[in-house]
Amino acid sequence: MKKVFHLEPIYKSFVWAGRKLIDEFNLDPGLDSIGTIYCAIAIPNELDSEVREAGEPLSSFYTSHPDVFGCDEEEFPVRMTITCNEGFQSYQSHPDDAYALEHDGARGKVSGAVALHESDHVGTWPFGHKAVDRNEFRELIEAKAWDRLFTTLDVRDGDFVHTPAGVIHGGWGSGIVTATFGTNGDLTYRFYDNDRNDPNRPLEIDKVCDCASFPELPFCAKRVEPVRMENMLCYDYHDVDGEYVAKKLVVYGSCTYAYDGFLIMTCVNGSGEVAGEQVLKGETLLIPHGYGPFDLQGDMELIAISYHKKSDDVA
C-alpha cells in the first residue's frame, strides 16, 4: 500500500514524572507533568494510539487492515514510547505473555531502552538479582536488602539495554529522555514503591517471585555502532523473532531507505520529510508493509519499531 499514516501520541503522567518531556517536545505548557509519550501502542480501551487518517484506534486498524502490516499475529505485536523518569519509579519486573495471560488476561512485556542523546555520562542502574533461589529472593525483598538483592549495570548514554521478561529493575530516575521499544503490553509487577500506598500501584510480590529466573537471565548494556549510508546513519538496536525490531535513523540531507515490513517512525529531533510527508519533532508515521524504497529529507533523528518472525524475509 502506497499510503503513509499518522499515529496520534498519547501522553501519560506518573508519580515519577516531571516537566522535561513537556519542554523537550514543546507540549502544552498547561500540563502538570508527563512521564511517557506513547508513540505507538494498541491496548484496547486503555492505551490505544489513534490512526489519524482512519479515525480509529490502532488495535482495530491492525485487524481491519492486515495488508498494511503484513503480520499474522492476532493482535498488534509491538509498542514504542519516549520516557523520562524524574523521580523514584518503583522496583519492578514485567511478565512474559504466557504468565500475564494466565494471571491477568493481558499481554506481558519484553522491552529495551536507549537514551536519545549520547554522551559520556555513565549511570549505574539496579538491574537483575543475586539471589540463589526463590526463598532467598523473597527474603531479600521483604527485608528491603536492596544491596544484597540487586546486581548493577553501568550504562553510558546511548547504550541499548534490553530487558527480558522477569528481570527486576527500577529505582531513581536521572531525568534522561529515553526511547523504549517492546512488545505490546503495559503490565508491571511492583515489589517496592518507595513506601507509597497507592491502590492504583499495588505491590505484587508473589508474581514478581513467580516470574524471576534462577540463575538470573543474561543481560548487558550494548553500544551499537551505526551503519553509514548516504546522508544517513542507521542504528540497529534489536531484532529478535517474536519480540521487536528497534532502530534509529539519523538523517542529514537526502537519502532513500527501504524496509520490507511495516515501520513505525517517530521524529525525536529536528524535522524533515518521510515518503513525501512532513514530519516534525514528536510526530509519528506508519509506513506500510511492502511500501518499497522511500525518500528521507531533512536534518532529523527518527526512532523506529517493527516486528517479524524468522521465516519472514526482512531487509
Rank of each mutant, 00 (worst) to 15 (best):
Arg156Met: 07
Val122Tyr: 12
Ala212Gln: 11
Cys71Met: 15
His162Glu: 13
Val240Ser: 10
Ala258Gly: 02
Pro215Asn: 02
Gly128Gln: 01
Tyr235Asn: 09
Lys2Ala: 09
His162Trp: 14
Arg138Phe: 07
Ile176Ala: 07
Asp120Trp: 14
Trp146Arg: 01
Phe181Val: 06
Ser64Arg: 15
Glu283Asn: 03
His6Val: 12
Lys20Thr: 03
Glu24Thr: 09
Lys281Thr: 02
Thr124Ala: 05
Met229Tyr: 12
Glu136Cys: 11
Trp16Cys: 00
Ser93Pro: 07
Pro288Asn: 00
Tyr192Asp: 03
Ala115Phe: 05
Ala246Glu: 06
Glu50Gly: 03
Phe25Cys: 15
Phe150Glu: 00
Pro29Ala: 10
Ile22Cys: 04
Cys255Val: 03
Ser90Tyr: 04
Pro95Met: 09
Glu277Lys: 04
Tyr189Gln: 04
Val161Ile: 01
Val224Ser: 09
Ala106Thr: 09
Glu56Met: 03
His308Asp: 02
Cys39Asp: 09
His94Ala: 06
Glu8Leu: 13
Ser213Glu: 11
Ile303Pro: 01
Val227Met: 11
Phe262Glu: 00
Arg201Gly: 05
Tyr99Leu: 06
Ser49Gln: 12
Gly87Ser: 01
His289Trp: 10
Asp295Ala: 12
Thr188Arg: 09
Thr81Ile: 12
Leu153His: 08
Pro218Ser: 07
Glu216Met: 14
Pro126Trp: 13
Arg134Asp: 05
Ser60Lys: 00
His117Ile: 08
Ser213Lys: 06
Asp236Met: 08
Gln297Phe: 13
Ala115Leu: 06
Gly171Pro: 00
Thr152Pro: 09
Tyr257Gly: 00
Glu86Gly: 09
Tyr11Ile: 14
Val132Phe: 15
Glu277Gln: 01
Leu116Gly: 14
Lys247Ile: 03
Leu233Val: 08
Val274Ile: 13
Asp28Ile: 15
Phe160Pro: 02
Ser271Gly: 09
Pro29Asp: 00
Val78Ile: 11
Trp16Glu: 04
Val279Lys: 00
Thr152Asp: 05
Met1Arg: 13
Lys247Phe: 08
Thr151Val: 07
Tyr11Leu: 14
Ala179Trp: 02
Gly185His: 10
Gln92Asn: 05
Thr180His: 12
Tyr235Arg: 10
Ile43Ser: 01
Ala100Lys: 15
Asp48Pro: 00
Ala115Gly: 12
Asp193Ser: 07
Gly276Ala: 07
His94Thr: 07
Thr151His: 10
Val314Asp: 04
Ala54Thr: 07
Ser64Ala: 14
Tyr252Asn: 04
Ser213Pro: 11
Gly185Thr: 10
His65Met: 05
Tyr189Lys: 15
Tyr259Cys: 05
Leu187Ile: 13
Leu233Asp: 02
Gly108Asn: 03
Glu46Trp: 14
Ile43Trp: 00
Asp72Thr: 10
Tyr11Cys: 08
Asp72His: 11
Asn135Glu: 15
Pro126Lys: 14
Val114Asn: 06
Ala115Asn: 06
Ser13Ala: 13
Tyr38Arg: 13
Asp23Gln: 14
Arg190Ile: 07
Val155Trp: 01
Phe150Pro: 03
Thr81Leu: 12
Gly123Met: 06
Lys144Leu: 06
Val240Cys: 08
Val274Trp: 07
Val245Arg: 12
Met232Tyr: 13
Val161Met: 04
Thr81Pro: 01
Cys267Gln: 04
Leu203Asp: 05
Ile10Ala: 05
Thr83Cys: 12
Tyr257Cys: 00
Val227Ser: 08
Phe25His: 15
Ile205Thr: 08
Phe294Ala: 02
Ser59Val: 05
Gly87Cys: 00
Ala40Pro: 11
